[in-house]
Simulated scan of single mutants.
Amino acid sequence: MPGPKDLDPSTSPRALLGAELRHAREKAGLSQEELGGRLFVSGSFIGQLESGTRRMQPEYARLLDDALGTEDFFRRNCAASAKSKHPQHFAEAAEAEAQATAIRQYAPLLIPGLLQTPAYARAVFRAYRPTGSKEKVDELVTARMERARILDDPTNPLLWVVLDEAALRRETGGRQVMAEALHHLIGIIRRSRAIVQVLPLKAGAHASMEGSIKLMDFKDAPPLLYFEGVGTGRLEDDPTTVRYQRHTYELLTAEALSPQKSLALIEAMAQDYAHEEYP
């Protein structure tokens, strides 16, 4: 009997690959936990591969072919699911973000990508790549703006951001770029597409002094946590770690200004930037 055909990269390859994995696992009579045990990963990890929440890496594709007797099907097709417009360390997180039903994020140093303007994003990428080509920076900006299209849906996902006041005070791209960025943020808030709370500098020490937090919830898969550093990033699904970081995020929301007071502060700062009166 002939094996399954190669997947068409133009038709959501990760979703198709996940569906093929579920079919092969069920045909082999294995639960997600049983298959995960053979790969030394959790059952939830297998579930995330099947739902397309996580990208299949070559090392897992090889193990899956061996465990499920699928010859080299997953090895041949995982390359199609790995194509991305995003930097390699962030690509898997961006793909998961697009499927999330809720995203909760603490941003300590900059306005999050989903809420950025093209000019602000360009200033950020140029700072990351001071000698990079204009074409490469333009490509990254375009990909970031495409990411933000998930906010075009009036109901999904829930986006809840705790934005450190330091991110608003850092003049990224200059005063006019900041004025535009904050007016854009105000528009998103007023359209009820995001809940934004500002963590004021006067709050002092807080629960996430050491870095950012991004928590993502899904309809048919366990939640994920994304850790990010300079040029690095990884997804984490360990329930204890996710639970701890969710508690940390809740502490941040308690310390932050209310959404109404946060909006008033952002509006005042946008006006100051626009009139070049910001101290």
Rank of each mutant, 00 (worst) to 15 (best):
S10H: 02
A61L: 02
S51L: 08
A93E: 11
E26R: 11
E50I: 13
I46P: 09
A67H: 00
R54Q: 08
S81P: 06
G37H: 10
A15L: 11
L39I: 02
E92N: 13
A61I: 01
T53W: 07
A107H: 13
R104P: 12
L30W: 05
G52K: 01
A67R: 03
F45L: 08
A91T: 00
G29W: 07
A100N: 14
A100K: 09
L16E: 11
R104V: 08
P87M: 02
A67V: 01
Q48R: 11
Q48L: 01
T70H: 10
E97I: 00
L17A: 03
R14T: 06
L30K: 12
G29A: 08
L63I: 00
R104Y: 15
R55Q: 02
A80P: 04
F90L: 10
H86P: 00
A28E: 05
D72Y: 06
H86W: 03
L63Q: 14
A100Q: 11
A94E: 07
F74N: 12
A80K: 13
D65L: 02
A102G: 01
G36T: 04
Q99R: 15
E97S: 04
A82T: 08
S10K: 05
R62K: 09
P108W: 07
E95W: 02
G47V: 05
Q57P: 06
T53V: 15
P9F: 01
E26F: 06
G47I: 05
L16V: 01
G47T: 01
A82P: 06
A94W: 07
A80R: 14
A91Y: 00
G47Y: 06
Q32T: 09
R25S: 07
H86V: 00
T53E: 07
R75S: 10
P58C: 09
A96E: 05
E34K: 14
R14D: 02
A19T: 13
M56F: 09
L16P: 01
D65P: 10
G18V: 02
P87T: 02
F40P: 00
S44F: 11
L35M: 12
L30R: 12
R76D: 07
P13N: 14
G18I: 06
E92I: 03
G37Y: 09
A100G: 12
C78M: 06
L21V: 04
A96C: 12
A98H: 04
G36P: 03
Q99T: 15
R38Y: 08
L16Q: 12
L64R: 05
